Simulated scan of single mutants.
Amino acid sequence: MEKIVEKAPGKREARKEERREAILAIAKRVFLDQGYSGASMSAISAELGGSKGTLWSYFPSKEELFAAVLDDATADYRRQLTDLLKPSDDVRATVLQFCRSFIAKITSPDGLRLHRLVAAEINRFPEVGDIFYRRAPLPTQQLLCAFFEREMAAGNLRRDDPLHAARALSSLCLGVQQRVMWGLEISVEERDREAQQAAEVFLRAFEPVREG
Rank of each mutant, 00 (worst) to 15 (best):
S108P: 13
L169W: 11
V91M: 13
R159K: 15
A153S: 15
G53A: 04
I26F: 00
F147Q: 13
Q177M: 07
E211C: 03
R193S: 06
G50S: 05
R210P: 01
L138M: 12
E151Y: 10
Q97A: 14
Q80Y: 08
L163P: 02
I26S: 00
A136D: 13
A14M: 07
G155F: 11
D33T: 01
F66E: 04
R179T: 10
E17K: 03
Q80S: 08
R135N: 15
D72Y: 07
D110I: 06
L143E: 15
L157F: 10
S45V: 02
T140Y: 12
V176P: 01
F148L: 10
D83V: 08
L117Y: 02
A198K: 04
V5A: 04
V91Q: 12
F148A: 12
E18L: 04
V128L: 04
M181V: 11
K52E: 03
V209K: 04
R12V: 03
G35N: 04
V180N: 06
Q178R: 13
Q97Y: 07
F98K: 01
E17Q: 05
L48Y: 01
F59I: 02
V201P: 01
H115A: 14
P208Q: 01
A154E: 14
K52H: 05
V118Y: 14
P87A: 02
Q177A: 12
E63K: 10
Q80E: 12
T54F: 00
N156H: 15
S101C: 11
C145L: 10
E47P: 00
A8L: 10
L203H: 07
C145N: 11
K3L: 04
F98D: 09
H115S: 11
L24W: 02
K86P: 11
Q34V: 00
A39G: 01
R113K: 14
R204D: 09
S88N: 11
G183Q: 08
E47Q: 00
K7D: 09
I103V: 09
P9V: 07
A8G: 02
A195Q: 05
L174Y: 11
I23V: 08
E64V: 05
D90N: 08
P126Y: 07
R15W: 02
L138P: 01
Y133H: 09
R78T: 06
A39W: 01
E207Q: 12
